[in-house]
Design a protein around this nucleic acid. Structure first.
Lengths: 139, 139
DNA sequence: TTGATACCCTACTTATTCGATAGTATTTAT
DNA sequence: ATAAATACTATCGAATAAGTAGGGTATCAA
């Protein structure tokens, strides 16, 4: 299960993607429309901005807008930003490898092969689902 | 990422599967061999027993043994037992559906379709990986 | 130039979960 | 009887989740 923060981020990105290249949206409006606590949403949008997905305009009449193309933002990107690794074990993570605390001889680890397969399948589907995927109204 | 509890469970199951139909193993021996805190492992084995995967024998010379066939225990089973839903959102969970707190009109939810797809792909690979999969030494 | 609007940033809070540990009870072979 | 092993309950400290609080800063309109 993903965190609410991550879910809120995706919902906000979808809302912003619906206005791609059509100016900015207010945090308050997204908050109301998507039923996300405003102060919490502020933090989320800021993180998305720092990660390069969004741009913003400050002051009166300001707001957030999509900076990257919605076709180029994947669920994998957002999941990694807010919830961390896609892999189920640190030792099979593609981008953030770490050895497991309890692993004494990684070469002899019986888990790696299968969990690497699981990670790869999961990663592929998450990379192939973009913000744009949520917008296209086809079956 | 899966919890350590879940990882330990899978490691213990693999160890027990290596002795399938060859009597029981002591918690203490699995603990040492797999580098899992013994008292923590006790809880885990007990849960696996209650879930029907293991059997046990009490008293002197007792221990745990595989009850189900290792080919019939999937990573999905163990993940669901210790870490919960495979689905990233409660509303697309196959076995434990719940509506999302923030969702006002589920019929109009823009997230469901894509996250249902992600859940299904993830589920399939996890269901197709069994405890036996970790034992077969092929590439 | 001042006030309203809106983003920017940090710190705090509260509840829950994670990863264990402790201690007792019970069963069983010898 | 007693030592070895599981069975079960309770507790604990640290981390994380999900928000709240309270400002600061930029912008624009009147």
């Amino acid at each position: 299960m993903m965190s609410k923060k991550c879910k809120y981020a995706i919902k906000a990105l979808i809302a912003l993607a619906e206005h791609y290249e059509q100016g900015n949206l207010f945090t308050a409006d997204i908050s109301k429309a998507q039923n996300i606590p405003k102060k919490f949403l502020e933090q989320i949008l800021l993180e998305l901005k720092h990660a390069g997905f969004l741009g913003s305009k400050q002051g009166y009449g300001g707001g957030y807008y999509m900076k990257k193309n919605p076709t180029e933002i994947t669920v994998a990107d957002i999941y990694r930003l807010f919830d961390g690794n896609i892999a189920l074990l640190p030792c099979v993570s593609l981008l953030r490898y770490e050895s497991c605390d309890d692993c004494q001889d990684e070469a002899a680890c019986t888990l790696k092969r299968e969990f690497a397969k699981i990670r790869e399948q999961t990663r592929l589907i998450m990379v192939n689902t973009t913000i744009q995927s949520f917008l296209t109204h086809e079956k």
